[in-house]
């Protein structure tokens, strides 16, 4: 009897319910096609034209938009700013998130649940609200930061943080780190809790301290997760810096805190240069995808 039943099951599993699969997969994929894939390819095509928001007489102009891009000093500035953010924000965010996750997951502090909630909280707030609140943290006269500096006697350091070309971008970086750390921390906690306690116990018996455990057990076992979160953080930095730059500084002063997507928005919706904006879109998308591929490869090679 038994083998027969098994055969039946195998038979059934091989035959696919075609109708069911179509109903489940096709509508979803159709939506993705309409609202993700087609627009992406459209961006690719339009980046080779001189389309404007008025939609009149768009002509194929080849790679001219791309050539112009690197002569456009404001584009180059936006690119540099974005690269600066990408160089520091994901690394700091992930490092902080790992340390905090390790403490919460491994320490015996009674209140660790509270820390988890508290650190995760900034992440759920609307980025617009975050931007506005942090604009006031950095506000020259009534901001928390300057009041604090004045309070501890460092009047010299106080300045108009968002209005200064040398600091505006770093204000955005700090805000990005502040709001993202908790999110990646929760992801890391989930992965760390998945590591069997026996390994840690064995390490404790061998006399390993917490820092030793972090570097020789937790991090190697979490390589894949860290790779994924790092890529997410890179992509997130490009993406989220738009809202912060738009709301906190408007890209100013004089482009000092403009980022790629913010410049794209300006070119597209304020100047109406759809073709050129699209070239910036494609460029940004390429950076994001290439970077994610590189870091995926790196994490795969190490393991």
């Amino acid at each position: 009897m038994k083998p027969q039943v098994a055969d039946q099951i195998k038979c059934k599993r091989k035959k696919n319910p075609v109708g069911f699969i179509c109903v489940c997969v096709l509508p979803t994929f159709l939506l993705t096609l309409t609202f993700t894939i087609i627009p992406t390819f459209r961006a690719l095509w339009l980046s080779l034209t001189n389309a404007t928001s008025l939609g009149l007489n768009s002509k194929f102009i080849g790679l001219e938009n791309y050539e112009y891009m690197f002569q456009d000093e404001y584009f180059v500035l936006a690119l540099k700013n974005t690269l600066k953010l990408m160089a520091c924000v994901p690394a700091i965010t992930i490092a902080l998130a790992l340390v905090l996750a390790f403490i919460i997951s491994q320490s015996d502090l009674k209140e660790r649940g509270l820390y988890r909630t508290a650190f995760y909280f900034p992440n759920i707030i609307s980025l617009t609200v975050v931007s506005i609140i942090w604009s006031f943290v950095f506000h020259p006269t009534m901001g928390i930061l300057n009041s604090f500096l004045n309070g501890v006697g460092l009047h010299v350091w106080a300045k108009s943080w968002l209005g200064d070309t040398s600091t505006a971008l770093w204000c955005i970086a700090v805000t990005l780190i502040w709001q993202a750390t908790g999110y990646y921390m929760v992801m890391h906690i989930a992965a760390m809790d998945g590591i069997s306690n026996e390994i840690y116990e064995a390490a404790t018996i061998d006399g390993a301290g917490p820092i030793h455990k972090l570097f020789s057990i937790t991090l190697p076992l979490m390589k894949d997760i860290i790779g994924i979160t790092f890529v997410l953080a890179l992509s997130g930095t490009i993406n989220l810096s738009f809202t912060l730059s738009k709301v906190m500084t408007g890209g100013g002063p004089n482009g000092a805190s403009s980022v790629l997507l913010q410049y794209m928005y300006e070119q597209g919706f304020i100047n109406g240069n759809f073709g050129y904006a699209m070239a910036i879109t494609v460029f940004t998308l390429t950076i994001s995808i290439v970077l994610s591929m590189i870091s995926r490869k790196l994490t795969n090679n190490e393991s």
Partner: peptide, 29 residues
């Protein structure tokens, strides 16, 4: 089934296409 792997891969790749990136073509769409 035919294409199941491809569709899954397309979705995995599409994770990196954020709405913000393609907001102008989305607007046109």
């Amino acid at each position: 089934f035919f294409g199941s792997k491809l569709i899954l891969n397309i979705y995995m790749a599409a994770i990196f296409i954020q709405a913000t990136f393609i907001m102008i073509p989305l607007f046109m769409q």
